[in-house]
């Protein structure tokens, strides 16, 4: 059965992703997302019995590095592009409950 998203689904996804979608953009976004489901539906038609699902598009293994702390302190450079800093901390709108 073809899955499709309602306008409410689209609003919720947009909210979770912190993307502002205006009411005028909503219908177009719904259409675009539903197209992705159509594509998934087409792929579902392929018989994959007995095939282990892949977690990554390429059949490669995770590269591992040795446990050595080599990164230098680059705080000044990093914080030069931050909107607000104080005492070495990045400042953000208050987040405590």
């Amino acid at each position: 059965m073809l899955m499709s998203l309602s306008l409410d689904d689209v609003r919720r996804i947009a909210k979770l992703a912190r993307i502002a979608v205006t009411d005028t953009e909503l219908a177009a976004t719904q259409q675009q997302l539903n197209k992705i489901f159509t594509l998934i539906e087409e792929m579902r038609a392929v018989d994959t019995t007995g095939i282990a699902p892949m977690a990554h598009a390429q059949d490669v293994h995770l590269r591992l590095r040795d446990d050595v702390a080599t990164a230098p302190d680059r705080r000044d450079a990093f914080q030069a592009i931050a909107p607000a800093v104080e005492n070495g901390l990045y400042l953000v709108p208050k987040v405590i409950e």
């Binding site: 590095r65 446990d67 050595v68 702390a69 080599t70 990164a71 302190d73 680059r74 705080r75 990093f78 914080q79 005492n87 070495g88 901390l89 990045y90």
Partner: peptide, 20 residues
């Protein structure tokens, strides 16, 4: 000694944001 996905130090108690 280092973080899970970067080579920054994990030592406790350093000045803020100096181990990133």
């Amino acid at each position: 000694q280092s973080k899970i996905f970067s080579s920054a130090s994990t030592a406790f108690g350093a000045a803020p944001n100096t181990q990133t």
